[in-house]
Design a protein around this nucleic acid. Structure first.
Lengths: 216, 216
DNA sequence: TCTGTATCTTTGTCAGGCAAGTATGCGGGA
DNA sequence: TCCCGCATACTTGCCTGACAAAGATACAGA
């Protein structure tokens, strides 16, 4: 948990703004993010824009080579597979750890409850993305490792971008997601690392496969 | 594997130089790394020094808050524990994966051979650090996930810094390290994920415990 | 002793500019 | 017609120099 008060520098604000544009598609896949344009648009100096872009590159939300403008990454099949492989790697071990401690974090339960509610209401499927991410994040955070949380956050940022890009909302039924989450939580509550591991693996494998079929 | 040819910008060179200074202790734990000093020392402009420092902060080799100078992090017990926890998380899953594929990368075998040779010669124990890191890195790289390799590289950079700081060389016998590595490789070659997982867990747990006892 | 203030250090951000590298379009030669 | 080399425009890498703002420090006063 970061402090309640957060000093936001100009660069921080720019990073946040650009992130949002990337996530909601205003900056489409493959679009060039040019330092001078950003600087003009937000009325900041070029070094400020540059720093923000470099930070986004560091977080994986933008890619660029030397002397080339940064671009919003386009996810191909290999990229999606790698993203989910890395994510699965992290989260499987986390589930094992949580199960061996029988630790079901309240935040995860809350997020799960929200997803359940959405599945009943049959509301917009895009609305499930946010609590879903929160569910996974709260599980990872529960093990209490700052480094692990940081790595996971980075992976999830990319995941979110990937989902937005592939327009993956509606590919999976909300009820299925809720059921799979439930299975993970049950296994953790039972203190069964092996089952928790497999339940999570199934959950992510399905999600990944849905994305891959959409990509062809 | 990155390309054979690498365009090194000034900032890249600075990052490399500062990294070395941090690793070999010329910049001791807690030392402040001040933008203007770096700029003067290497005869570059302050923005250049700033960019290099920010990159090192991003890699975890320096820490800093807003309006405060960057500092070489000091590792306390909690920090070491977290570092090894995150590392173990990653590597355990990797070993499982490699074992299920029966994949023993040649680079890992080479590094292991070097360590064996050192254990026979009874040479300087500090010399084991480099091949040891190479051993673990080559295993992670073998799964072929760029993201995973990147995360691991970041963790290992911190690990190296931590070991240098605690002066952990000589805490463990080279022969023991070699034996533990051998156990991991055997389990992978046998296609036994469970055993590979546990062999690696033991290896890292021991290393971590050695560091922790040194810290008191 | 504690507190408030003045000063110094260091970072955040800016403006403007030159050099170097990359992409693009055009014209000439095979 | 197609391919190759060349000139141009665009973009980034790095620079100098500067001012404002935030932390750190030391000192004087209550």
């Amino acid at each position: 948990m970061t402090g309640r008060l957060q000093a936001r520098s100009l660069i921080d604000a720019l990073v946040a703004e650009l992130s949002e544009q990337i996530f909601d598609g205003r900056l489409p896949a493959g679009a060039a993010v040019i330092e001078t344009h950003v600087a003009d648009e937000y009325e900041v100096a070029r070094p400020t824009a540059k720093a923000a872009i470099e930070r986004l590159v560091g977080e994986g939300l933008l890619r660029r080579g030397p002397h080339r403008s940064a671009r919003v990454p386009v996810f191909d099949a290999g990229n999606v597979a790698d993203l989910y492989f890395a994510r699965t790697c992290l989260e499987r071990q986390v589930m094992r750890e949580l199960a061996s401690r029988r630790l079901t974090p309240p935040a995860a339960l809350g997020a799960q409850a929200e997803i359940r509610a959405l599945s009943g209401a049959g509301g917009s499927t895009t609305a499930v993305v946010e609590p879903d991410i929160r569910f996974h994040r709260s599980l990872v955070d529960a093990v209490g490792s700052p480094r692990l949380s940081r790595m996971h956050a980075s992976i999830m940022a990319e995941t979110r971008l990937c989902m937005a890009q592939v327009q993956a909302f509606g590919l999976l039924r909300v009820a299925e997601i809720a059921d799979e989450h439930e299975a993970v939580l049950d296994a953790i509550a039972d203190g069964d690392p092996e089952r928790a591991d497999q339940a999570l693996d199934l959950h992510l494998t399905r999600a990944c496969r849905a994305l891959l079929t959409r990509l062809g």
